[in-house]
Nucleic acid binder design. Structure first.
Length: 803
RNA sequence: GCGGAUAUGGCGGAAUUGGCAGACGCGCUAGAUUUAGGUUCUAGUGGGCAACCCCCGUGCAGGUUCAAGUCCUGUUAUCCGCACCA
């Protein structure tokens, strides 16, 4: 009988939809499982083969959990606001709303063709008014708690298109579209105070089951460092400049100071700075560079010494020259550093280039004139007054105590994490629900006026002065102050795409609620998300942003737990056949539709899981897909080997119990490739023996079902098993039956395999040693040699050491 | 630069604790079946050797150990992220 996968898959997909097989239930007495995957951005390119890697993995987990008796929530939706849609709309004169609807329809068709067990009744879309009403509501909570504020921030500005650009749209310092120069332009932007949550975002990671690299990456991104702020007096003034340093112990080694080119002192003391014009020119040059370029260590250090401005080292009264240089960033610390070239690589390079003195203050390294001595953990202080002779650790405490006593410095914890720039000068995003009133300042819209909808207009193209396209829509912009009733203007910037995706997992719980973002009791039942899988590239932005929002909602009493995701795992990228990232320009893109059409969804799902280690990048292979298709055919042909015996036959009993154990454990560890390998071996065993019993087939179909749901349902039905396979129970195994009575032990001489012997599994050390020494192969090779030692590893091997 | 990872046959990968390196799949070779084969089945397949024995073999160089893909030291190469892409 032919394996007619397209008919079979259509049949079961229709059946599941009709019977609502995968709808999350209301039975709150059952244990719940909330599995989450990152909802897609519905781009015009359609589904990428990378999406199903994540979706199939958690689909397998979700299906297994249902078979294990859990009430499972496995939802999907659309993260539909965004730049590409807006740019496509502008270019082709189609409204972004229409573009979005078309793209979603296509994505939905594709996802359905793969047979994911999503609860489609909970589908959400971040661009729906009923959805973004609550995105706006959350923003208002942030605003009311003082976590949203306005600040001048630089944006990328294309001098020719006269439009703000995303970093991605800036390629080598020029505009991606027109090739013109891009400069940094200051604009007042809404900011969210994620830094206020920095410590909690670090601390609360401890209780979570996140893969270690995610935790490490988040911690490094937040970048907590302990150090001190120290005031350096400006010579000839009452003023001082404050620096942040993690190495206050090296204060005696400071030989100059460096300010960020944007540091306010450059303006403040422009009259004292003889070469002010040169400094301004340098600052303008720096403005053209991205932060990435500026901090690159490999590049040549540049800078300008401020002629006429000098600082005084508070510990020894020495006068220090003040420089500006672009490797010092205004956005970190205080925008000013003390330079200790002997013990900091960047300072050392700078000092070498500009002939600044290098003074050793920690002894124990090589010659500091030849290279900076930075890892000073075993060093001892020298040339440092009262610190001399101390260990670095003690010196840090001693110097800070001294500075604090004198009132010119104090301990300070800094975070690399910066506040979240929340404004976008774009049309296709959530409007920010605030009104500017001359009398009252920024006034939030009353909650009953939400959602503040995006005006439906024909012209959503960028303005030529850097304002959002909404700024041109005067009917919409001009309003009255909700507080005093005077004429007022709406905020015209919109929210970034991150907004809608920062809380979407909450909406799935109660997607149609018009009174709250979700019902409290339902939140109590379903939260936290039990298992969230997504890409590593989201670790430092989306994952951190959504943890931040969730914590704010927790502080507001809206959600029941301090953390949203109990478990976070991550999948590797699928590369093109040539081992490069898939992209249109490289011509190595694989379309999921083609695979489903040629081989079926089950083969596609199976291959996506068999392709390689789940957490690692792997190239696509057309031949690999064929291999999985052959596996499906061999599975299908098992029907011809089916006998009417119930249960497992004795010769395969151990194999069956081992397979159940292996597949069950492998799915939990996301070792999908080895789970499938086990199932392939099982089919080989059935074929080798020329039959499969009903009991064996039933177990096999259950184990394969999460991976290949259609073919297994069909075979389940044809074999006459009761009900839907999706409603059956996951098989169990007997640990005792996974252990063999007899095992093969390896015999080694000096660590090299020289023979094998079959012995009872529970053989004692002594018996194993005796049997090994009596073994023919061993006797032959040990005769005439002296046995120095015999090592027995029970159940594994005997190693005989001879001289 | 900072941060995160990876390196095993011709290829994707396997090897939960240090204990038979190469499971499973692809590809390849030979044979069988088939009107045909880009179908299916059987056997073989890390390298060296005619062959058993044996020797070599997990990026590279050292080390620890009865035993190292796995642990330690050093080193090289590649990939991913870097805050307005999602």
């Amino acid at each position: 009988m032919d394996y007619t996968f397209s008919e079979i898959e259509k049949k079961w997909q229709d059946r599941w939809e009709k019977e609502q097989t995968f709808r999350a239930g209301d039975d709150r007495s059952k244990p719940k499982f909330y599995g989450l995957v990152e909802f897609p951005y519905p781009s015009g390119h359609g589904l990428h083969v990378g999406h199903p890697r994540s979706y199939t993995a958690l689909d397998i987990v979700a299906r297994k959990r249902r078979l294990e008796g859990y009430n499972v929530l496995y939802p999907i939706g659309w993260d539909a606001f965004g730049l590409p849609t807006e740019n496509f709309a502008i270019k082709n004169h189609i409204h972004p709303k229409k573009v979005t609807a078309d793209n979603i329809a296509n994505f939905k068709r594709q996802l359905k063709s793969i047979g994911f067990s999503f609860d489609w009744s909970r589908e959400i879309n971040t661009t729906d008014e009923a959805y973004y009403k609550w995105t706006q509501w959350i923003f208002l909570q942030l605003f009311k708690r003082g976590l949203a504020y306005k600040q001048e921030m630089p944006i990328n500005w294309c001098t020719s298109c006269k439009v703000g650009l995303a970093n991605e749209e800036v390629v080598n310092g020029v505009c991606e579209r027109c090739g013109s120069e891009v400069v940094q332009k200051n604009k007042s932007q809404w900011m969210l105070k994620i830094t206020e949550y920095a410590q909690r975002l670090i601390d609360d990671l401890d209780g979570l089951d996140f893969i270690e690299k995610v935790k490490i990456q988040q911690k490094n991104w937040i970048g907590r460092s302990e150090g001190a702020e120290v005031d350096f007096a400006i010579a000839g003034t009452e003023d001082h400049v404050t620096v942040y340093t993690t190495r206050p112990d090296t204060l005696f080694g400071a030989t100059y100071m460096v300010l960020s080119p944007e540091h306010p002192f450059v303006e403040k003391y422009k009259d004292k700075i003889a070469n002010y014009a040169e400094a301004v020119a340098y600052r303008e040059e720096a403005a053209r560079k991205s932060e990435f370029e500026r901090t690159e260590l490999a590049k040549d250090k540049t800078g300008v010494m401020l002629d006429g401005l000098r600082a005084i080292n508070p510990v020894n009264g020495r006068e220090l020259p003040i420089w500006i240089s672009d490797y010092v960033l205004m956005s970190y610390g205080t925008g000013a550093i003390m330079a200790v070239p002997a013990h900091d690589e960047r300072d050392w390079e700078f000092a070498k280039k500009f002939g600044m003195p290098i003074i050793e203050v920690v002894a124990g390294g090589e010659d500091v004139q030849a290279a900076a001595y930075t890892d000073t953990s075993s060093g001892v202080m020298v040339n440092s007054g009262f610190l001399d002779g101390m260990q670095v650790k003690d010196a840090i405490s001693a110097i800070i105590d001294d500075l604090e006593k004198r009132g010119i410095g104090h301990r300070k914890v800094n975070y690399k994490l910066r506040d979240w720039v929340f404004s976008r000068q774009r049309y296709w995003g959530e409007p920010i629900p605030l009104v500017w009133c001359e009398h009252c300042g920024w006034v939030p819209l009353p909650e009953e006026q939400l959602p503040l909808t995006l005006p439906e207009v024909d012209n959503y193209e960028p303005t030529d002065n850097g304002e959002s396209p909404l700024a041109k829509m005067t009917d919409w912009v001009n309003t009255t102050c909700p507080k005093c009733g005077a004429p007022a203007k709406r905020e015209t910037d919109t929210m970034p795409q991150w907004a809608g995706s920062s809380w979407y997992f909450l909406r799935y719980i109660d997607p149609h609620n018009s009174e709250a973002l979700a019902d409290k009791e339902l939140l109590d039942y379903w939260m936290p998300v039990d298992w969230y899988n997504g890409g590593m590239e989201h670790t430092t932005l989306h994952l951190l942003y959504s943890r931040f929002w969730y914590k704010v909602l927790y502080d507001c009493g809206v959600v029941p737990t301090p953390e949203p995701y109990q478990k976070r795992t991550s999948h590797g990228m699928i590369l093109g056949e040539n081992n490069e990232k898939m992209s249109k320009s490289r011509g190595n893109v694989v379309n999921p539709d083609d695979i489903v059409a040629s081989y079926g969804a089950d083969t596609f799902r199976c291959y996506e899981m068999f392709i390689g280690a789940f957490d690692q990048a792997t190239p696509w292979s057309a031949n690999g897909v064929k291999g999985c298709f052959r596996f499906m055919e061999r599975v299908w042909n098992l029907m011809e080997l089916l006998t009417d015996e119930e249960g497992y036959s004795p010769e395969l009993e151990g194999t069956m119990h081992k397979a159940v154990k292996k597949v069950s454990e492998d799915i939990e560890r996301m070792k999908f490739n080895t789970a499938i390998a086990t199932l392939m071996s099982l089919v080989n065993d059935f074929n080798r023996r020329g039959k499969v019993t009903r009991g064996e087939l039933a177990t096999f179909l259950l184990l394969l079902n999460p991976t290949a749901p259609h073919i297994t349902e069909e075979m389940w039905e044809r074999a006459g098993f009761a009900g839907l396979l999706s409603a059956a129970s996951w098989p169990t195994y007997d640990e005792a039956k996974t252990v063999d009575d007899e095992i093969e032990m390896v015999l080694q001489i000096n660590g090299k395999v020289r023979g094998k012997m079959t012995v009872p599994a529970d053989i004692s050390r002594e018996d194993a040693q005796t049997a090994a020494l009596a073994n023919e192969a061993i006797v032959a090779q040990t005769t005439g040699k002296q046995i120095a030692k015999v090592i027995v590893v029970p159940g594994k091997l005997v190693n005989i050491v001879v001289k």
